[in-house]
Design a protein around this nucleic acid. Sequence first.
DNA 1: GTAATCCGTGTAATCGATTCCACGGACTCA
DNA 2: TGAGTCCGTGGAATCGATTACACGGATTAC
Lengths: 338, 338
Amino acid sequence: MASIKDVAAEAGVSVATVSRVLNDHPSVSPEARARVLAAVETLGYRPNAVARSLRTDQTRTLGLVISDVMNPYFTELARAVEEEARALGYSVIFGNADERPDLQDHHVRTLLDRRIDGLLVSPTDGGSPLMLDAVRAGTPMVFVDRWIPGVDVPVVRADGRRAIRDLVSHLHGLGHSRLAIIAGPAATTTGRERVEAFRDALRAYDLRLPEDHIGQGDFQAESGRRATERFLDLPEPPEAVFAADNLMALGALDAIRARGMRVPDDIALAAFDDIPWFTHTDPPITAVAQPTGELGRAAVRALVDRIEGRAPRSVTLPARLVVRRSCGEPSPVRRSEP
Amino acid sequence: MASIKDVAAEAGVSVATVSRVLNDHPSVSPEARARVLAAVETLGYRPNAVARSLRTDQTRTLGLVISDVMNPYFTELARAVEEEARALGYSVIFGNADERPDLQDHHVRTLLDRRIDGLLVSPTDGGSPLMLDAVRAGTPMVFVDRWIPGVDVPVVRADGRRAIRDLVSHLHGLGHSRLAIIAGPAATTTGRERVEAFRDALRAYDLRLPEDHIGQGDFQAESGRRATERFLDLPEPPEAVFAADNLMALGALDAIRARGMRVPDDIALAAFDDIPWFTHTDPPITAVAQPTGELGRAAVRALVDRIEGRAPRSVTLPARLVVRRSCGEPSPVRRSEP
DNA sequence: GTAATCCGTGTAATCGATTCCACGGACTCA
DNA sequence: TGAGTCCGTGGAATCGATTACACGGATTAC
């Protein structure tokens, strides 16, 4: 592959001049510029990003470490991140942590080795030493969706409290009073927060959330299935189940079907994170929708601000309830897709 | 960040010795090795992958340019690719082409600029000059899922002919004889092949595939909806619709619902590409399932073979029919999930 | 006892870019 | 006319690694 030297030779100038043309530095004569451009053309020259990065100490690359690519919520997030990054002149390298702290560390490490300019993370756990070190060492970082408390890093996320209140109100209005939740891992902020918000909302209706109505999940479908089975084994099973993410809701649906029960007739179901497929399930599922795309874009903007020396802002966007048919006859509160 | 020089100074040896320890070269004394390792530890040194790549001319990175990340089929493929690559000591940089040739070119270009060791592509179109140049220049490349005819690059893909024959047999057995297909873009191999396989299978039952029973789609949901609407507007609409990918099947489902019609009672529906959600739709959708994970892994192995100087093989794996309820009462041919 | 071999180590070239500095020529201004 | 500016350009240092080569000392072989 042709290097800058080849171009310089072809154009009859020095490598310095070629470099100046390429970075359109002002002091290059029009003739020299033209000759260089012609040489670039005939050789099909493309600058070596590796060499450039070594010299300039910037890769124009962002790292994104995501908890689970197979989860449509994160897929959409990743897509939005890539789009915004591209618009700002950055590339993105993705790492899929699969909800495993060791994999998360693996990706953070290789990303750091590659000297990415900044890191976007939705942490799987409470924060590994590695990640804490990276923050301390000054690596530009932004948390998205989830975060690590006590670490001074901007956070871009959705606030679901309001939407969860709306959900509980919706369920209560439909006559459900024994409500259960399938929680995410306690190590994640989203895992804890959604339970708390749910509990708080219940309190407003004088409802309680007994221990055996809190299922412990890990944001994967299988755990949703197990938690739901335990609910259904209870002497007095819940009338409604709220899954803290879309995959666990799917698992719950499986478990309910396996017992020959029907949603919403026998039991109501709702989920956190809305995804296109929820319109097409049987029945369509009521969910709390995050502004996923906007979250991804805001996270990139915050990170790039930090990288380029501007002050990054934390951002919290509201989530909203999307009512479908999985909790019973839709009330006229907030209609949306059928 | 500490460099190899700092480590050398700390350990009281030359950078050459440090490098030898790091790449466990045999001729280093145990004492020197120990001192270097200690220095690495105290400084928290990590080798700069950028510098290493510049020198060795290899990045241990693979590029994957995918047609559409939001499509669960490609998401699963991407995940499998990353896993296998990681197992072989490579990282993966993803590019999402969104079915747009210009975006595909953008990603190929930046990937090439970053001097990735090899490229995995599922081409959106018939092959841009850029991609052809890259092949000619000797960039290790492997096509996955789709390919470009006449280009000498190994192809890893699934063969759906057999499964499509099974599908047509299934539909025929249920009494459907007016069958329609929503095709993918003619610029893609998968877009063309699935139509041909379908037509061939129909012929075996003395069925024809008239022009107005071939809808032109682009592998996106919206196009599936439009094509289906056109089918339903026909004086004599088809009794069964086969969508050439999962997203278009979703669009078809929407269109059918919007007319107040029911699947499979009023019209049968089947899809190419099976995804977990198809178990949960109303009704569960009959689909042709590709061995997606195995495809991704095989593609990586072929590419790494090529990179490391072994002869890469093209791989074709069979797809299989998964019968659910969207075409009518399930026949006892090949049952699977409910 | 001398020559050949081997081992551990350091010096320095190298990868492909960017950029500081110096230099020569043209121009401006007093 | 001579000093000072400005402009376009090239030489060379530099980023952080790897690695060919040289070198000195110890070991081995004859």
